[in-house]
C-alpha cells in the first residue's frame, strides 16, 4: 500500500508539490488528471527518486517502508515502476540486454530464481507481441530512434517484463493512435490483480473507457483538489478544469 501524506517538493527554488496526500491500496487503479504543469510528472519522479527533487515536508511510505529513505534503484527493487512521459534513449545498449539486466536484479531481489536465457527470450518475445512491437525491437538500442508511439509501447513492454507491484504510467496514452491505446489498455488490464496497483496519469477520458479506474483525482497547483469515481473524468472531459478554480477559491 502506498501512502503519501502532505507531500511538499521543490525543484531548485520552485515549489511544485504543495501538500499532496494520496493513498493507493493493493489492487486499486487510480487515475490522476490535471492541467499542464500542475505537478503530475513531478509526483511520479518524487515517488521513484529522481535526483534534483527536494522533499521539504511530508511522508511517503510503501508497504510500511519509508520510501524517501531509499535510493532510486532500491525503490525500483521494492516494486515501484515508472513509465516515463518522455523516455530517454540509450544508444548501443540493446533493449534485450537492458531488460535482462533489470529482470535479473529485480528477480534476485524478490528472491526468485534467475531466468535462463532461453526462458527470458521467450517471455520477452511474448511481451513484445502483447505490446504490438516487432521482435526486432529487442535487438535495437533502448528507445534508439523509436517513434513517439513506439517509445510508449516500449515502456509497456518493460512494465510487463518487470512485473512491478506499483506501476505509475505517466501519460503512456499520449501520442498513441487508437489501436495502440487499446494495446496499452489491454496490457494494464491483463496485469491487474488483487495485489498490484496502478496510478495512471492521463489527460484523456477515453483511456478510462478501456481501463476502469477505482478513483479519479484532479491535481492542480501541486495538490489533489478533487477526488471521485470514474464519472469525475467524464465531467472533466465536458467542463474542463475552470469550474474547479471557482470551487477551490
Amino acid at each position: 500500500m502506498l501512502v503519501i501524506e502532505n507531500l511538499h517538493a521543490r525543484i531548485g527554488d520552485e515549489d511544485i508539490l504543495k501538500g499532496l496526500s494520496l493513498t493507493v491500496k493493493p489492487g486499486e487503479v487510480h487515475a490522476i488528471m490535471g492541467p499542464n504543469g500542475s505537478g503530475k510528472s513531478t509526483l511520479g519522479h518524487v515517488l521513484s527518486g529522481r535526483p534534483g527533487y527536494e522533499v521539504t515536508a511530508g511522508t511517503i511510505t510503501y508497504n510500511g517502508e519509508d520510501v524517501l529513505a531509499l535510493e532510486t534503484e532500491e525503490r525500483a527493487r521494492q516494486g515501484i515502476f515508472l513509465a516515463f512521459q518522455y523516455p530517454v534513449e540509450i544508444p548501443g545498449v540493446s533493449n534485450m540486454e537492458f531488460l535482462k539486466a533489470s529482470v535479473d536484479i529485480l528477480r534476485e531481489h524478490r528472491g526468485e530464481e534467475a531466468l535462463d536465457a532461453v526462458t527470458f527470450m521467450k517471455r520477452a518475445r511474448e511481451a513484445c507481441t502483447l505490446a504490438n512491437l516487432d521482435h526486432s525491437f529487442l535487438k535495437r538500442g533502448v528507445n534508439e530512434g523509436f517513434s513517439g508511439g513506439e517509445k510508449k509501447r516500449n515502456e509497456l513492454l518493460q512494465m510487463m517484463l518487470l512485473e512491478p507491484s506499483l506501476a505509475i504510467l505517466d501519460e503512456t496514452d499520449s501520442g498513441l493512435d487508437i489501436d495502440a491505446l487499446q494495446v496499452v489498455a489491454e496490457g494494464v488490464n491483463n496485469m491487474r490483480n488483487d495485489t498490484r496497483s496502478f496510478v495512471l496519469v492521463t489527460h484523456y477520458q477515453r483511456l478510462l473507457n478501456f481501463i476502469k479506474p477505482d478513483y479519479v483525482h484532479v491535481l492542480a497547483d501541486g495538490r489533489i483538489v478533487r477526488s471521485g469515481d470514474a464519472s469525475l473524468a467524464l465531467h472533466l472531459e465536458e467542463h474542463g478544469y475552470a469550474w474547479l478554480d471557482d470551487e477551490v477559491a
Binding site: G49, R50, E71, T72, A76, R77, P91, G92, V93, S102
Partner: peptide, 29 residues
C-alpha cells in the same frame, strides 16, 4: 552519459555503476 540515462537505469533497478558500465560497453560494441 546523461543523468537521465542513469535515472532510467536506476528506475529499472540497476545501480549507477552497473548502469555506467552497461552504457560504456554498448558504446564500445
Amino acid at each position: 552519459v546523461s543523468d537521465d540515462q542513469l535515472y532510467l537505469c536506476q528506475q529499472r533497478g540497476l545501480d549507477a555503476e552497473k548502469a555506467v558500465s552497461m552504457i560504456v560497453n554498448g558504446f564500445c560494441k
